[in-house]
C-alpha cells in the first residue's frame, strides 16, 4: 500500500508535467496552427538556465523567473519564423513540423556542444531538497512533492484560464472555428502571438518541475521528452485538450508503476509499447482528433 502511494505520488507529478507539455503543444497546434516539435528542447534549455542560475543565487524565486523568462523568450523568438512559413502559399502544417525539427536539431547541438561541455548536469540538493518520505527502496523527495503540488496547481490554473477568461475563450474560439472567430472580431495574429507567450510560460513551469522531479538535465532529454509528448498527444487525439489531460496523467502513473516492477530502461519501453499499440489500433486517438 505504501509503495503504491509512493508510486502514485511520483506518477501524478510526472503526469502533470506531461499534461503541461502536451497542453502547450496542443495550444500551438490549435491556435497558432503549427506543430512545435522543438518545444521540449526549449524546456530543456530552460532547465539548463535554472541550473546556471542556481550557481549564482539560491533565491528560488529568481531562479524560477530566469527559467520562465528564457522559455518565453525562445518561444516568442520562433514565432516570426512560423508566421512566415504559414504565410507561404501552397504550404501546409507539415512545413512547420519540418522547420521545427530543424530548430530542434540546432538547439540540441548547441546544448551538446556548449552547455557544461555537453555533459549532463545534476541539480544540487538545495534545489531538490532531502527525502521526506521513504518506503524501503522508494523514497519521495521534497522536490517530487513540490513537483506534484506545483504541477497540479499549474494545470488547474491553466485550464481555469482557458475556460473562464476572455483570453482563454479566444484561444478556444480560434481553435474551433477560425472564420467565426474572425467574424466576432477576435484579433487572430495578436492572439496567436499571445499563445506563444503562454506556451513559453507553460514550458518554463514544466522545466522547473522537471528539474525538481528528476534532478538532472542532458542534451538528449529533449528528444526523449518530445517523443513522450508527441505520443501522448496522438494517443489522446491531436488537439484534444481534455484527452491530453487524461492521457498525460495516465502515462505518468503507468510509468511510475512500471518503474516499481520492471528494471531501468525497460520500464520506458513498456509505456511506449502501450502507446504504440493504442495508436496502431486507434490512429485517430482515444478521445478523437480536434483539428
Amino acid at each position: 500500500m505504501e509503495i503504491f502511494i509512493a508510486q502514485l505520488i511520483s506518477g501524478l507529478s510526472l503526469g502533470s508535467i506531461y499534461v503541461l507539455l502536451v497542453t502547450g503543444f496542443n495550444l500551438m497546434l490549435l491556435v497558432a496552427k503549427i506543430i512545435q516539435f522543438a518545444y521540449p528542447q526549449i524546456v530543456v534549455i530552460s532547465m539548463y538556465t535554472c541550473w546556471w542560475a542556481l550557481k549564482i543565487t539560491s533565491n528560488k524565486l529568481l531562479i524560477i523567473i530566469a527559467g520562465i523568462t528564457v522559455s518565453v523568450a525562445l518561444s516568442l523568438l520562433s514565432e516570426p519564423i512560423f508566421r512566415k512559413i504559414s504565410s507561404i502559399k501552397d504550404v501546409d502544417i507539415n512545413a512547420t513540423f519540418i522547420a521545427s525539427m530543424g530548430i530542434a536539431m540546432i538547439m540540441m547541438d548547441v546544448m551538446s556542444h556548449s552547455f557544461n561541455y555537453g555533459f549532463p548536469v545534476a541539480f544540487p540538493p538545495k534545489w531538490i531538497g532531502g527525502n521526506i518520505l521513504s518506503f524501503g527502496l522508494i523514497t519521495i523527495s521534497k522536490g517530487q512533492l513540490f513537483a506534484l503540488v506545483g504541477g497540479v496547481i499549474a494545470v488547474s490554473v491553466f485550464f481555469y484560464l482557458l475556460y473562464r477568461t476572455n483570453q482563454g475563450r479566444f484561444f478556444r474560439a480560434i481553435a474551433e472555428n477560425r472564420l467565426a472567430a474572425e467574424l466576432v472580431g477576435i484579433p487572430i495574429t495578436k492572439t496567436s502571438i499571445f499563445s506563444y507567450f503562454i506556451v513559453g510560460i507553460l514550458g518554463g513551469f514544466s522545466a522547473i518541475l522537471f528539474s525538481m522531479l528528476i534532478g538532472s538535465a542532458s542534451p538528449w532529454l529533449g528528444e526523449f521528452v518530445a517523443l513522450k509528448m508527441l505520443a501522448v498527444s496522438i494517443v489522446a487525439g491531436l488537439g484534444n485538450l481534455h484527452g491530453g489531460l487524461v492521457c498525460g496523467l495516465l502515462l505518468g502513473i503507468i510509468e511510475a508503476i512500471a518503474v516499481g516492477y520492471i528494471s531501468g530502461s525497460w520500464s520506458n519501453v513498456i509505456a511506449f509499447v502501450i502507446m504504440l499499440a493504442v495508436i496502431l489500433i486507434k490512429p485517430e486517438g482515444l478521445f478523437g482528433t480536434k483539428i
Binding site: R169, R172, A173, E176, N177, L179, A180, L183
Partner: peptide, 11 residues
Amino acid sequence: IPEGHIIFSSM
C-alpha cells in the same frame, strides 16, 4: 451573420 449558421459548436 455568415451563411450556414457558423457557431462555436463545442462551447
